[in-house]
Write a protein that binds this DNA or RNA. Structure first.
Lengths: 228, 228
DNA sequence: CCGTATCCAATAAGATACTG
DNA sequence: CAGTATCTTATTGGATACGG
C-alpha cells in the first residue's frame, strides 16, 4: 500500500494487454495509452527536452509525461540522450522505429480531419503544424514550387524544402530562405486551414510565394452528420 | 453521486479532450479510448451483433462494450441497425466514415508487426485475420494467382478473391471456391505467420494452391532490441 | 439469448506542491 | 529545469442482477 515507487511503476509499465495477436491490438498496447502518440509526435522532428514536451502538450501533467516517456523508452520507441557539451542537457529522442510511426500519425490525422467535430482553432504545437503540412500538401498544386521556407515559432525554427510537389521539413536554423513566417503556430494554422488573411502573422521575404504557400494544404471534405 | 445514468453517461461520452487542433489529437479523441479501435475493427467486414463482438474481443466486459458502442455511435462511426425479417435482430454496423478507418487500422498493424514483443500466437478473431491478409499481402508473390478462397471459422464464413496481386475479402457464403480453409483463425494464423505445417487446419480443395497461399504474407523484419 | 444497469475493487489520470 | 510525491477524481473491468 506504500510501494508507489519503482517496483510498482515497473509493474504498471503497461496496462493490461488485449490478449489479441492482431497487429492493431499490439499497436494499441505500444502507443494506445493516453498521450503516448502525442508525445511521440512531438519527437518526430528531432529531440526535445522535458519542458518543451510539457509546453507543447497543453494539459499533460508532469507525472503522466514522466510515465509515458518511461514506457516509450522501455518499449524502444524513445531514447534518452544527452546533448554534447557545451549544451550537455538531457533530451528525449525518437528511435528509428519510433520515427517509423510517422505514417501512422499522418493516417490518423488525415482520417480525423474529416470529422465534423474537428476544431482547427484550438492551440497547436510547431511540430504538429509542420507534420500537418507534410500530411496535407497537395502535390499537384505544389509541383511548380521550388523554394526554401523558414518558420520561427518562439525560439524553435524549422525549414521546409519544397521541390517537385514534395515537402521536406526539419528543425534547422533559418538560412538561405526565400520566405520566413514568424508568429504562433496557431496563427499560421488559422491562415492556412482557417482561411484567415495572411496579415495575422509576420511574413519576411517573398510575399507572392507566401500567398501561394498558404493555399497548398486543402482540408478534406467533412463527413455529413446526416450520413449516419 | 447517484446519477450514473443517462445524464452522466452523456457527459462522459468523451473523456476530457486534448485541446489540440492537430488532426492526430482529434483522431485520438475519436478512437483513442481503450477498445474503441478494436470494436471498429470487428465491424470492418460487415455488421455484427453484440455477442459476436463480445466473443471476438477477448476480455472486454459487457458494460465497456455497451459504452464504446454508444460513443462510437454518437461520433458517427457506428450505426445501430436491425436486420430485415425474418432475422429481425439488432446489429452494429460501421458507417462509411467508420469504414474509412481501415487504412488506419492497417498502418497501425503493419507498424506494430515490427515489434519484438509482438506475439502472433495469441488468440485472433476471424476479422483480424482477414484484415491482416489484406494488410500484409505481398503483391509480387500473389500477382500470378487468380482464385477464390473460402474460410470457415465456426459459423462465420469469408471469401477472398485474389487477382493480379490484389486481394478482396468479404463475409460471404462459401460458393465456387477453389479452396476452403476450416478451423480456428488462430490455427490458420499459426500456419501463415508462425510457419507451422498446413495440417494444423482443414483444407478442402486445391492443396497446391493452399501451400502457395500461406506464403503470401511475409512479416516485416523485427526491430532489434539493440537499436535503442 | 440480447443487451443494460449497478455495484465494487483496482488503476490511471489530473492537480498541486515540492525537491535536487 | 527536471522530475517526484501525494492527494483526488475518473475510468476500467469483473460480477451480478435485471428487463425484453
Amino acid at each position: 500500500m506504500k510501494l508507489k515507487n519503482v517496483t510498482e511503476l515497473a509493474k504498471s509499465e503497461t496496462r493490461r494487454g488485449y490478449d489479441d495477436a492482431c497487429g492493431t491490438a499490439h499497436g494499441l498496447e505500444l502507443i494506445g495509452e493516453r498521450w503516448a502518440l502525442l508525445v511521440l509526435r512531438e519527437l518526430m522532428l528531432g529531440p526535445r527536452r522535458f519542458s518543451d514536451l510539457r509546453a507543447d502538450l497543453p494539459g499533460i501533467s508532469a507525472n503522466v509525461l514522466t510515465q509515458r516517456l518511461g514506457e516509450l523508452e522501455a518499449k524502444g520507441l524513445v531514447r534518452r540522450t544527452r546533448l554534447p557539451p557545451p549544451a550537455n542537457i538531457q533530451v528525449y529522442e525518437a528511435t528509428d522505429w519510433g520515427l517509423e510511426a510517422e505514417p501512422l500519425i499522418q493516417t490518423l490525422g488525415r482520417w480525423a480531419a474529416r470529422s465534423p467535430r474537428h476544431d482547427p482553432a484550438l492551440p497547436l504545437s510547431g511540430v504538429s503544424l509542420m507534420l500537418s503540412f507534410k500530411t496535407m500538401i497537395d502535390a499537384q498544386r505544389a509541383r511548380k514550387i521550388d523554394a526554401r521556407i523558414g518558420f520561427r515559432f518562439g525560439r524553435d525554427t524549422y525549414v521546409a524544402r519544397l521541390k517537385k510537389g514534395a515537402i521536406k521539413i526539419a528543425r534547422a536554423p533559418i538560412k538561405d530562405c526565400d520566405l520566413l513566417f514568424e508568429g504562433a503556430p496557431t496563427a499560421l494554422a488559422a491562415v492556412v486551414y482557417g482561411g484567415q488573411p495572411l496579415d495575422l502573422i509576420d511574413v519576411v521575404g517573398d510575399h507572392v510565394l507566401a500567398e501561394r504557400f498558404v493555399t497548398l494544404f486543402p482540408l478534406p471534405s467533412k463527413v455529413s452528420p446526416l450520413d449516419h
